[in-house]
Design a protein around this nucleic acid. Sequence first.
DNA 1: AATGAATGAGTGTTCATTCAT
DNA 2: AATGAATGAACACTCATTCAT
Lengths: 209, 209, 209, 209
Amino acid sequence: MDTKTRILKAAEKLFAQKGFDKTTVDTIAHKAKVNKAMIYYHFKNKDQIKKALFDNFIYEIITMVDDSMDVVLDFESSHEFRKFFDHYLLFWEERRDILRVIFMESLKKNNRDSSLFRFMDIIIKNEEEKIMEILQQRGVSTDYDQKLILIADFFTGLIPLFSYTLYKDQWCKHYKISEKELRDKFFQAYAMTHLSYHKTMEEQLKNKD
Amino acid sequence: MDTKTRILKAAEKLFAQKGFDKTTVDTIAHKAKVNKAMIYYHFKNKDQIKKALFDNFIYEIITMVDDSMDVVLDFESSHEFRKFFDHYLLFWEERRDILRVIFMESLKKNNRDSSLFRFMDIIIKNEEEKIMEILQQRGVSTDYDQKLILIADFFTGLIPLFSYTLYKDQWCKHYKISEKELRDKFFQAYAMTHLSYHKTMEEQLKNKD
Amino acid sequence: MDTKTRILKAAEKLFAQKGFDKTTVDTIAHKAKVNKAMIYYHFKNKDQIKKALFDNFIYEIITMVDDSMDVVLDFESSHEFRKFFDHYLLFWEERRDILRVIFMESLKKNNRDSSLFRFMDIIIKNEEEKIMEILQQRGVSTDYDQKLILIADFFTGLIPLFSYTLYKDQWCKHYKISEKELRDKFFQAYAMTHLSYHKTMEEQLKNKD
Amino acid sequence: MDTKTRILKAAEKLFAQKGFDKTTVDTIAHKAKVNKAMIYYHFKNKDQIKKALFDNFIYEIITMVDDSMDVVLDFESSHEFRKFFDHYLLFWEERRDILRVIFMESLKKNNRDSSLFRFMDIIIKNEEEKIMEILQQRGVSTDYDQKLILIADFFTGLIPLFSYTLYKDQWCKHYKISEKELRDKFFQAYAMTHLSYHKTMEEQLKNKD
DNA sequence: AATGAATGAGTGTTCATTCAT
DNA sequence: AATGAATGAACACTCATTCAT
């Protein structure tokens, strides 16, 4: 692994652990096993490390979205939905450190960075396209309320998913429950809410015709 | 307002704006218009300000829950549900600064504070009791999967609500949409997911009998 | 015990434990169980507490010296000398906290306070008088080198005695020896040096005649 | 002189002047003409400066002891003893700043550092060895009370020597006496006590045979 | 690309002292 | 005599950033 990557990996872990502000450049250098001055050779300042991390993440999202053309999103079959659920969750779980940092930073009122919305946008747009494809195959109208979809997908689709990813460890420890049980139950809950929402939407669209 | 309260109010606002770590004690003192040393007269250290804020919040939650005995939680009537929705949202919106701080802090992996779970617990328990009451009135079985309820209420009930509270301003700005429109659409989405989940649960319980 | 005395007692103990500079007025107030502002009611500032302590000590020395008229200082009899040794040591041991503080402060190059010399002076003068009395009784010349006596009594008479008082606890702990054994051996050493010095002096004076 | 040494030199002087606690890191930085942060680059905290100073001192003692193999310690000849006395005193006088600090700190009841005993130990052990060597040359028994020797050497041998080193300036000023006169008289007193003690010891050992 | 040393502005915390009551 | 609150200056320690090599 080259120096720059080592710095980024170290920074990501530390930001996730202690938050961006509580993490010192010294600690990053130490964890990355590089000389502190090297950090300033590769990055203009501490903020740029965060920015690089966020940009890389967005880039990963875009790549993932491009690569997931073939992942089916069929709300009719619960079994298919579980496969879809597991597939995406795995992706998020592997990126939960950076996810954590983005959420922490996005919660600051001061925050001027729009990474959260930028990457959520990409994902929702992609999901929408997939759904529209299926609807078109089934000959259902695709004339829905775009803003509503965005809001619903964000607040009741993605947010619960991310919260699950970010809080599952604390949850398991706090409620003394196994990760497997939590995951299964969360899937049930998610199906009952988000899946049922998609079905309702489809129903409504059918009725429109 | 006495000194201690002024300090707490100032700290809350600043923590919400810049995060706990980026807020300096100097700034708090300045905003609260108190001498910096007075902060250390009233609080052992910066952490204890946060703790006091969190403890006060939990106390407010408990009081609110005790006072909300008469708020009906009837999922049959969409109109009743909207009233319920508006009533609670108002409460959270008024406390969104501290909410913001709790979430920011809870996202740190390092975090040893369990305020998030503590106050979510109280709310969910209260909601559950209200639902059970109604179910009993209707003569429906109350033999449900407690863990599932907890998980569902947390990740798909409360989390979206809080996310809405915390992100609505950024959302409105980013997507250039009025607060009223966002709120109405979010309600629709929330009803389609969380309300429908409650209905499904009741259905299942009826079928058990 | 009245407030002022409680403050002085507390200050003395704390100064001995942590040194004057490391002791805070808060701690004194807490230990003395008085309100901090009361300390400033009774003393102009922290320095004046030290000064009061030192002045009281000097006063005690004077009183002690006045009261010890009848204590015999006969170097001929080892048994008498041991009685003398034990009698004085008891007095110093009871005042070793303040003794400790005086020495600590006197070691600072900066130090402008002359308490150490003031009280040493009193004691040496008193001892000298006693010795002279005995010498006169025995008809021995009292024409000795005053400066030498002062120097010898200070550096080889009093200083070892005070060092014993101040370091005995540390010594016992460090060398794992009982207090009794240390005291007996120290007496032997003291007799071999300081007592023998007195004898030598008397011898020399006799030879003068 | 490199930065670290400059810091140590400055700290030593200041600690000796005002005591460890009254000396601020700012002052050390200023006196050493280094940036304050550099102090924390070289030392973990203020305490570690003290520790480094003490450790260096112990190291100096060890070196000195190793180098002093050839210094004769013959109590028979007063002239030899004066040479011995002057030689060692010079060494202590050159280190009296750090000596001062060690004594000041060792007087605190709280004190957990054992530097005083550690370095006294080394010196006494060395002196003992030299004496034993001479005794063996003279064919005198070396079966003495080890604990007594330690106690006597510490309280009546080294302590007066160090007290002289540390208080001579104050003494000269207070009693308006020249340094030369003080030194000569102190030597007389020291010879009368400590030298005579060594003679007594040798006498007793001879009688044992 | 890499390093050890350096810097200035902070950052949480403490302290002696004072004030109003 | 007594108290709780207040104050300003200082204090130990840290941090992001830079420099010389």
